[in-house]
Design a binder for these strands. Sequence first.
DNA 1: ACCTGAACACCGTTCAAGT
DNA 2: ACCTGAACACCGTTCAAGT
Lengths: 254, 254
Amino acid sequence: MAKRADRPADPLKLIGLLWREQPPAPRSGITTRQVVALAVDLADREGVDAVTIRRVAEEAGVTAMALYPHIGGRSELLELMFDHVAGQTYERAPAPVAAHWRERLEAVARANWAACVRHPWITDLSPGRPAPGPGTSAKYETELRALDGIGLSEVEMDQTLTALLALVTGAARAAVAAHRVREHSRTSDTEWWRAIEPALAAAMGDSDRFPVAGRVSRAVGESTGRANDAEGAYRLGLSLLLDGLAGVVEGRRA
Amino acid sequence: MAKRADRPADPLKLIGLLWREQPPAPRSGITTRQVVALAVDLADREGVDAVTIRRVAEEAGVTAMALYPHIGGRSELLELMFDHVAGQTYERAPAPVAAHWRERLEAVARANWAACVRHPWITDLSPGRPAPGPGTSAKYETELRALDGIGLSEVEMDQTLTALLALVTGAARAAVAAHRVREHSRTSDTEWWRAIEPALAAAMGDSDRFPVAGRVSRAVGESTGRANDAEGAYRLGLSLLLDGLAGVVEGRRA
DNA sequence: ACCTGAACACCGTTCAAGT
DNA sequence: ACCTGAACACCGTTCAAGT
C-alpha cells in the first residue's frame, strides 16, 4: 500500500516522460533516468512509502519542486519506476528461450518471482493498464515470445500470460507481506503464533468452530514452520497451471 | 494503493478489536462494528484513499480523536475492514457445497471474484499474514472444506487454495485497475489507445521493435475491444488450474 | 472512562519570484 | 528555461485538558 493514488497518472504526460531520449539538460544536472534510479533504490531499501517527492529530492540534492519538470508528479514517478524495473526483469535472468514451451514459461515465472523478491514494493503497486513504456513493452514482447508458436490463439496467449503473472504476483505478494511482518516483529511465524495464541483462544472461546482450518494450520506449521507457505503455493500452482496448459496444447496437436 | 502503511497493525491490539463481543458502551453511541461498516461503505464509494481517520470520524459524527479507542489506528482499521468483508464473502454467494470438488472450487473462485467487484479496494490491500479475525477465519474454513476429502494432504490443500486465490485476486486486481482508468478517462480502451497512439508511435519511432506484442495487442483489441481481458484471463487460468488439479487427483485415485 | 482542541511533524502540489 | 521559498490544504497521531 502506497500513498496517494488519488490522482492517476496523466497518460500523455507519462508517455512523453517514458520515451524521451534527450533529457532537457537542466542546470542541476539531474535527469529523469537518474531520479527514477534513485527512487527505485530508495524503494528497495525503505519501501514505497519512503518514496516521497521531498525525500527523493533530498537524495538528488535539489529542492522538491525542482523534480516536477523531470518526473511529472508522484503518480507518474511510480509508473516510471515500475517501467524501469520491468525493463530489468530479463537482464539478470536468462531470457526464456528454451526449446520446450514449458521450460520457457517456467523461466518467465522465475524471472517475475525474482523481480518481486528484489523489488518487493512492486507488489504494492496496482498494475492497471500497464504503463506503455519501453521496459514494460520489452518485457511483454519477451514473455509473449515464450508463448508463441505452441498452438494458442493471440487472445489465448495474452490471457494465459495474464493468468500466469497473476498467479506469480499474487503469491509473491503474500510472500512479501508475510516476510515483512516476520521482519518487523523479529520473530518466526511459530513464535508469533505462540505469542498470539492465548489472546486468540480467549477471544474465540476455545470452541472448535474451525475444525478443518485448525487441522490444516497445524499441519502447515509443523511441516514448514510457517503460517502460510506462499512459495510452495506458487510452485504447486504454476505446476498445475502448466499441466492444464499441456492438456490443451496436446489435445490440439492430436 | 492506499495511504500510510508505514506502521503495520499491532497484532495484539488488533485481536482484541477483532474478537471483542461487548463494545465499551461509549458516550457517543458509536461502536467498533458501526465505524467499520461506515468505513467499508466509504471505501466502496470513494476508494481506500478516502478512508482517512478524519473523514470516517465526520461520517460517524464524532471528532477524529474519538475514533482511536474504537479502531486502534488507521492500520488496524484497514484490517478490521478486511476481516469484515471476508466474513461476508459467502453470505450472498451460495456456500461451495456441490457434490463435485470442481464445482465447489469454481464457487470459491466466483465468490472471491464477486467480492473484488463489490469492494474493489480490497485488491489494494496487501493480504500479508491474514488478519486472524472471525470473518477471515470463517472464510478460510469454508474454503478449505471445499478442498477437503479429495485426496490432497493438508499442506497441499493450503497451497492449492493460496494459488487459486492468488490467481483470482491477481486477475481481479488487473480488472479493477483497468476499470478505474476507463472510468476516470470516460473512454473505452480502444478510444484511449487511439488518443495515445500518435504520441506513442512518435516516441517509439515507428520501428517494429515489438512484433509479437503488436500482433497480440491488435488481436485482443479486435476481439474484446479492450487492451487487456483480465476476466478472460481469470476464466482461462482457473480452468487450466483445475484441469491440472484433476490430473493430480485422478492420478492418485488410480 | 470517554471525548475534545490544539498542536506536531509530516504530505503533494501551486505559484509568484528569482536567475 | 529552470530552480527556489513560501504557502495551501491536507494527513495520522499525541497529549493535556475538560466532563
